[in-house]
Design a protein around this nucleic acid. Sequence first.
DNA 1: TGCGCAATTCAAATCGTTTTGAGAAATTGC
DNA 2: GCAATTTCTCAAAACGATTTGAATTGCGCA
Lengths: 349, 349
Amino acid sequence: MATLKDIGTELGLSVATVSRALNGFPEVNARTRDRVQQAAERMGYRPNRIAQRLVTGRSGMVGMIVKIRPDMSSEMTFFEILTGLTAALAARDTDLVLAVDQADDPVVPYQRMLERGILDGFILNAPVPDDPRVAWLQARGIPFVMHGQSDAQVDYPFYGIDNRAVMADSVGLLAALGHRRIAFLNGEVRLAFAADRRAGFRAAMAAEGLAVPEAFIASDQPGESYGYARALAMLSGRLGPRPTAVICASTVIAAGVMQAARDLALAVPRDLSVMAHDDALPQLRAINFSPTLTVTRAPMREACVPLANHLIDHIDGVAAARLQTLIRAEVIVRNSTGPVPEGGHDPWH
Amino acid sequence: MATLKDIGTELGLSVATVSRALNGFPEVNARTRDRVQQAAERMGYRPNRIAQRLVTGRSGMVGMIVKIRPDMSSEMTFFEILTGLTAALAARDTDLVLAVDQADDPVVPYQRMLERGILDGFILNAPVPDDPRVAWLQARGIPFVMHGQSDAQVDYPFYGIDNRAVMADSVGLLAALGHRRIAFLNGEVRLAFAADRRAGFRAAMAAEGLAVPEAFIASDQPGESYGYARALAMLSGRLGPRPTAVICASTVIAAGVMQAARDLALAVPRDLSVMAHDDALPQLRAINFSPTLTVTRAPMREACVPLANHLIDHIDGVAAARLQTLIRAEVIVRNSTGPVPEGGHDPWH
DNA sequence: TGCGCAATTCAAATCGTTTTGAGAAATTGC
DNA sequence: GCAATTTCTCAAAACGATTTGAATTGCGCA
């Protein structure tokens, strides 16, 4: 591996000049810069990140700690994030160091990674309300970006979708079609995004003047059979008058709901409208549902680009307040939603 | 963060002595060593990996590049590997840098990661026959360990299970129960492990004097519905006399086969024996099948400990020949296998 | 008392980069 | 033509560890 010194001796220049030439400092002669750049190219020079880090205090590496949650949905999502994130970080010359959290205390793995002294910052995901990781990292001045934050009243960088708006859009769409009994199959409310959606759902329903019995708001790990089982219970009539529309927190859940509808001989959208929030996971595309699925859509992979940029910008010193992005999911109306069926006009109460 | 110099000035010692004291060199006075160690403890000293790397040429970081393969089975497996691997690496004070391969050329992502100059070696998985990554890394003298190699005639470190033995054990068990028509639902034969299993299956069947029509050896990405669809075809009788036993490359596939048997009203193990190779994925446990599943078992997570150790030992200079581990999977007989049913004694030919 | 040897410790070089402060060369102003 | 400025380049110091070779100390022994 060629070093700055190699280029320097080759060209009869000092390492200082070579360094400045390559880093685009203005005080170096244009002809010298050309010579240096050509030599660097020719000799296959790559700056040694280790040496750079030692002097700049930056390593060009960020950490992410994933928590094992044994459900398919979170694994698919994680893969999607990983793909988008490593690509987006690579575009800014940054590497991703990964660890799996197997500890009880949520901050322990962060502490362990930090002790190595090789990280510039962290990417956090799946926030919980009053996330203890946030306080811990902020107390130590460690830069981080939060993925999935949807409450803007914080003082750290984040990227997330407006989950209340997601629910307002979904409920609004269904209410406009005449639906009054709308059920909601949520994710785990322990997680902030699901808590926000639940609040958003209730607020949107209330705004339409509609009440929802607790039995028709489900919350759990969005596993393989969760959607199917909960939809079956809700649609069977056992819990009360069955909903005419169901909103799902993910397309995985929607797949289960569709299956339940088929098993109960309910036609979608004639007897039941179904919609979901779509992270655009390539394994389960809303367009491949039958009927095609009406969704609120916010591609997970694309979200990784601003996520990576926010973190690196923050490390570079940009203020947190300028690195807070809350996007609004797109509403895509397809064929799984339709007008409220005959005789379904009555609200629950 | 406390440095060697901090400890030195605190104790009135030179950094050299502090360094030697902490690294267990014999020429430092026992009392001095104690003082240094206590001071280090008290001041929360952690060696700066970056500085260590610069002078030793070692970074304590290894890379892994995962290839996106959109099937559930490989994602579950990847999670399992990730969990075991980061824990095993951490035990040897090593971090894992991860990237996702989205390029066509299999060596390009390795080259890109290497250019950063921060890695001590690589963990490769999912080898293909004559893997181009091997030649590329060997030509450059980059240490690596291969996960899943099952042919011992190579000159690099690896850890894998003996896939031919897996098939010999499986076929042997079923043949001993009187089965003559044994089908095999394999993984993708593009991958070395599946090619080895196919060869092992054929050899084991030939050793029992049994022929198998090609229609009863399936190979594909072990997706969600693959096992179900292939088993349905084989067991329907459309392709010829139906098998009395099925061997599956994974428990995911076996789940599909069980479902197909149920749909065709075939009782397991009375009408059909089913066995699988079990990577011990926590999401799909062989013991939770009904009936409980007979398997060849080799826990994926445990495999990561020798995998990590092989790589780090190799980086430390241990010869590749001493770092080749081929383990034999354990055979666990449960309730999904039984004697060949009445009238199922005839071989295919 | 003085010499040699072992046991400890230390100063300095090293890794490859960035950055500071200063110096040399070229250009300008009077 | 000489001083003042601008333009360019360089040597050296840093970052925090390891490692080499030398220096110091204490000890036993003649």
